[in-house]
């Protein structure tokens, strides 16, 4: 049984995203440790990509910092394995189709599984293209996580009927990044999802403040935060761990 389930058992999950290797391997590892120890329920480890088309400027810049520091997919496997040695927390990768495909999906998922990774989010792999990775991922015990967007409408039921791990509900149109307001009618989207599946659903994109997290956690099974955390990494550099820990605690308390 997937560890991912644990994140949602008897609680609302706080899911924390950071780009691996931002700004360098050691700091990034310390950041992940701080986030886990502060109480995150699931971590998303971003494998940096040269052209992340679903990301806003904050995460784009994190990817550039990580790649410039020499971060590679192999080093991300090492980072995940180091975390897995010390923590039982569910971990998922978040990256784009090409780093997985070009590495060789079979080898990629084999190494991801060996590093203790439980799932993967690939934003440029929609339902129609799941066949590219789904079977290989499943063979290695990696959950290929589905995304549902505000524009999914009649696709929601189809997507929700074939999901693994959790469902990533995209809160807003556009790319990742901090937003002041989320206007999508998320409760109807969540209702449709719940009719189709009992796979837990978490909301991401644009969430940064505890008040938003509180509101979102009432609608869904979990809350995903990325850009707001990456911004802390960018702002505090080597001092980021303690600031990240404070932030995670404040968000956890709100949901």
């Amino acid at each position: 049984m997937s560890r991912i389930k644990d994140a949602f058992t008897d609680k609302k999950a706080f899911i924390a995203f950071l780009t691996a290797g931002d700004p360098d391997y050691e700091t990034s590892l310390a950041n992940f440790r701080a986030v886990i120890e502060a109480g995150a329920d699931l971590i998303e480890i971003g494998i940096p990509f040269s052209d992340p088309i679903a990301e806003g400027p904050v995460i784009q810049e994190a990817d550039i910092r990580a790649l410039s520091s020499g971060m590679t997919t192999d080093r991300v496997f090492e980072l995940a394995a180091e975390l897995r040695r010390d923590y039982d927390i569910p971990m998922v990768f978040m990256t784009y189709a090409n780093p997985v495909y070009h590495y060789g999906a079979d080898v990629f998922f084999e190494k991801a599984a060996a590093a203790g990774v439980d799932g993967i989010i690939i934003p440029d792999c929609p339902f129609e293209e799941r066949g590219e990775f789904a079977e290989t991922a499943e063979r290695h015990g990696i959950d290929l996580i589905s995304m549902i967007a505000p524009t999914s409408e009649d696709r929601i039921k189809t997507i929700a009927s074939d999901t693994k791990g959790f469902i990533y509900v995209v809160s807003s149109l556009g790319v990742t990044g901090v937003r002041n307001e989320i206007t999508t009618d998320l409760s109807s989207i969540l209702a449709l999802i719940k009719e189709a599946t009992d796979t837990p659903a978490a909301i991401g994109f644009g969430i940064s403040k505890p008040e938003q997290a509180e509101r979102m956690s009432k609608l869904a099974d979990g809350v995903i935060v990325g850009s707001a955390m990456v911004r802390i990494v960018a702002e505090y550099g080597k001092d980021a761990p303690k600031h990240l820990a404070e932030y995670v605690k404040s968000m956890k308390a709100a949901i």
């Binding site: 088309i53 792999c125 129609e128 967007a149 524009t151 696709r155 995209v170």
Partner: peptide, 20 residues
């Protein structure tokens, strides 16, 4: 068929764009 030329092509884009 389904936007493929042999194995090339496809629709590898974010879910947000799929309906469009």
């Amino acid at each position: 068929e389904h936007g493929r030329f042999g194995e090339f092509g496809g629709q590898y884009i974010p879910e947000t764009l799929m309906n469009e």
